[in-house]
Design a protein around this nucleic acid. Structure first.
Ligand code: MN
Ligand code: MN
Ligand code: MN
Ligand code: MN
Lengths: 147, 147
DNA sequence: GCATGATTTTAGCCATGGCTAAAAAAGATT
DNA sequence: AATCTTTTTTAGCCATGGCTAAAATCATGC
């Protein structure tokens, strides 16, 4: 049996800290996909279909940016589309969208319950939602039931 | 006088939504600088100086990544350094660091007060801090004084 | 059914933030 | 002082996410 390195009694402060930053970077990796599928799901529900142009308008980016991003999402198996046609979500895409909606809703309602304006809750939750762990989300949900 | 477009009675839903995404993108733009200067300030306070290597270790990225980022921060007037030497914060750098520390502390303590573990508060706050508006921060601070 | 106008995609640019491998500088050892 | 080891920087690669301008496609009116 190979000799094993002794397990450190305590995680070094540097290790601890880097874990947090790694998590943030991972969150940001999945953020774009999450926001896209959530938005696409909303458009499909509200208007029957999601067009690239509507996505661009609502994200506040150029059309070309959306086209490129959608290609990546298609490679990731989250959306399907043909040129000049509306965008569809795959099964995985819908799953991710639903999950995002659920988390987003909890965060936004939580901020409202905390006493901020509707405007601020809407805006801040758009960024915060991606950094809320399962544990924190549960704590927010609990707070909501008690208020 | 040129004719002016009539002011819309209500902001369109698309405009409203894109404003939130624009804010998130702006937050992410300033995030890296904020985390760097905060970390550098901590290192200076705790150990007397901040070395690039320590920054890399604590951020969990490669050394080369830090070297490049520090160059950008230098261009932005937030840090000053000479090759093979420790990193210093400029006046602006210290201001940004202090501001970041303050916000970070409030967010972390707020999560703790909400009932999540110390570990989770530490990790989640690292991402959330950058998306908390002045109004939400104030609401969190208020919650803290009442608990 | 074709011309023309509007929409959408493609092409290609840029900055950021990550990486590894090679080069250079600093620091230790003898 | 010269060498050898360790640390730090440089060079150069890649993916992402943004943009504008040009090309391609679609759709409409005639
Ligand atoms: Mn979001
Ligand atoms: Mn974020
Ligand atoms: Mn911070
Ligand atoms: Mn942070």
């Amino acid at each position: 049996m190979a000799s094993t390195r002794p397990k450190p009694r305590k995680l070094s402060s540097a290790k601890l800290r880097s874990a947090a930053f790694r998590r943030v970077r991972a969150d940001h990796q999945s953020e774009l996909a999450q926001d896209y599928v959530e938005l696409i799901a909303d458009l499909i529900d509200e208007r029957g279909e999601a067009r690239g142009t509507d996505v661009a308008l609502r994200l506040g980016v150029a059309n070309a940016t959306v086209v490129k991003a959608l290609k990546r999402l298609q490679d990731q198996g989250l959306v399907s589309q043909e040129p000049y046609r509306a965008i569809f979500l795959t099964g995985d895409g819908w799953k991710l969208a639903e999950d995002g909606r659920r988390r987003h809703k909890i965060v936004e309602r939580f901020l409202l319950a905390l006493g901020v304006s509707a405007e601020t809750a809407r805006i801040d939750s758009e960024g915060i939602e991606h950094h809320v762990s399962r544990e924190t989300l549960a704590a927010m949900a609990k707070f909501l039931t008690r208020n």
